[in-house]
Amino acid sequence: MTVLADHFQARWERPPSGTWFAPGRVNLIGEHTDYNDGFVLPFALDKRTLVAAAPASGRTRVVSRNEPGDAEFDTSTVAPGDVPGWAAYVAGVAWALREAGHPVPDADLLVESDVPVGAGLSSSAALECAVAVALTDLAGITLDRTAIAKITRRAENEFVGAPTGGMDQMAAMHGKADMLVFLDTRDDLIERVPFRLARYGLALLVIDTQAPHAHAGGQYGERRADCAAAAEALGVPALRDATVADLDRISDPRIRRRARHVVTEDDRVRQVVDLLSGGVDPRAIGPVLDASHASMRDDFEITVPHVDVAAACARSAGAHGARMTGGGFGGCVIALCDDGDVAGVTTAVEKAYAERGWTAPVAFTAVPSAGAARLE
């Protein structure tokens, strides 16, 4: 049994039926393009959320070893607004499965995660997808990975109320070792793209800036509304259908900047896919990562000083390219480094933070890993 299964046994005096996991994700490039029917290029992390679960004789009981606030609800009746806090993501999955015609029995669920919360690494999608594969297995429901991703996205959008796109759940479900997940969000088609960093003496450093962000509304929602306004001004279904040449037809300068980021970011995603699919040294994507960060900073205006400083310091210390990853307003920076430069880049960012009196960042290297599955 897993260690989490042992904790389950201790709490409920019976073993779980199994333990399931789903990973967090890092988005290599393609920010705020997913809800614009565009392209994204994430990969699944080796940091993940575990769920030990077993059918329950009464109501569903949900406990986290990381977060306070146990929850109880009935899967047959739970509705948006019934369950607060982190457990809303769990209840939302049961609700979304039921709404999709797949009712699930009540269960006891014990959750544990090493995906950092509030860092832009999709801890919420990892929780949702881990719960979804656990509940569907317990109920004997057979769904493909894309179907589960869509159901968990609905849980986040409609039950929790976070207006996110579908990239996070698709990465958590479709991840594979040493592969990126190239996703066309219009039709949910995926293509796996090789990203074998070790072969080239490279590492992808993830720097958690410790500047937390929030997605459920606020400026994330405002950016999404700006993108909708841009598409309407151009008369296109979504910004994925626009070109740079179209942008001069948008009269509002703020809306035009927002659209320019999305249109050029889609182009950058495809450029990275073409480079990596062609077997080039991954160092070649460094300037594209830098351009993405500049676009998020200047046109989409979603960076904050913590991430701008981290990205600039990483480049100055030898990184081939660096950019913010995630929805913005905090979170993480990724830096493509030679193996031998990881320590130096980390130290440079730590020093810059100390000079400013900021909380020290937390850095780790990330490798593309497997998507959601049952452990035992």
Rank of each mutant, 00 (worst) to 15 (best):
K150W: 10
A94R: 07
I148E: 01
R153K: 07
C227H: 05
S123R: 11
A363Q: 02
A52L: 11
A5K: 01
P116W: 07
V93H: 08
V26T: 02
G24D: 02
D70S: 15
I207M: 00
N27M: 09
A56D: 02
T49E: 12
H306Y: 11
G321E: 02
G30F: 05
G58M: 13
A294D: 14
G81D: 10
G326F: 09
D34V: 04
A87W: 04
Y220R: 11
R14G: 05
G101M: 05
A100V: 09
L180Y: 12
F195D: 02
V307M: 04
L197D: 14
D144I: 10
L4P: 01
R186D: 09
T142A: 15
V349M: 13
P103K: 10
V309E: 13
D308P: 06
L121Q: 05
L50R: 15
I250P: 12
A211P: 02
L197S: 04
W20R: 03
N27I: 06
D339E: 15
V63F: 11
V133M: 11
D246Y: 09
R223K: 12
P368C: 13
L45E: 10
D168T: 03
A5L: 01
T303K: 05
F8V: 05
F21L: 04
W95H: 14
D178T: 06
S64M: 03
A177V: 15
D82P: 11
P16S: 01
A71N: 10
F195G: 00
V83Y: 08
R268H: 06
V362A: 10
P253R: 07
A373R: 14
G85A: 12
G217Y: 01
T142C: 04
A126W: 01
A229P: 02
A233H: 10
V83W: 09
I141Y: 10
L289G: 03
T60F: 00
G318C: 13
R258Q: 12
H7T: 12
R254E: 15
S113V: 03
I334L: 12
P55Y: 01
V3D: 14
F300T: 08
R59F: 08
H261F: 08
V307G: 06
K150Q: 13
D274H: 14
V206M: 04
V133A: 06
R154Q: 09
C313F: 04
A335W: 09
P116R: 05
G58F: 11
G235T: 05
T164K: 07
A52R: 00
F21M: 15
R25F: 04
W86N: 08
V367R: 13
M170F: 15
A259N: 06
A245E: 15
L239W: 03
H213R: 13
A130I: 04
D187C: 10
L45S: 13
E156D: 12
P42M: 13
A53N: 09
P194R: 13
L180N: 12
V62M: 04
A211S: 15
S292L: 11
V345P: 01
H215W: 03
R11E: 08
C332I: 05
Y200C: 06
A119C: 12
E350W: 07
D187I: 03
L275H: 03
T359E: 15
V273Y: 08
S76K: 14
D299A: 15
F195V: 06
G81A: 02
S57Y: 05
G38I: 00
E222N: 14
R224N: 03
L289P: 09
Y35W: 10
A319K: 00
Q219R: 08
V288M: 06
E158G: 07
A172K: 04
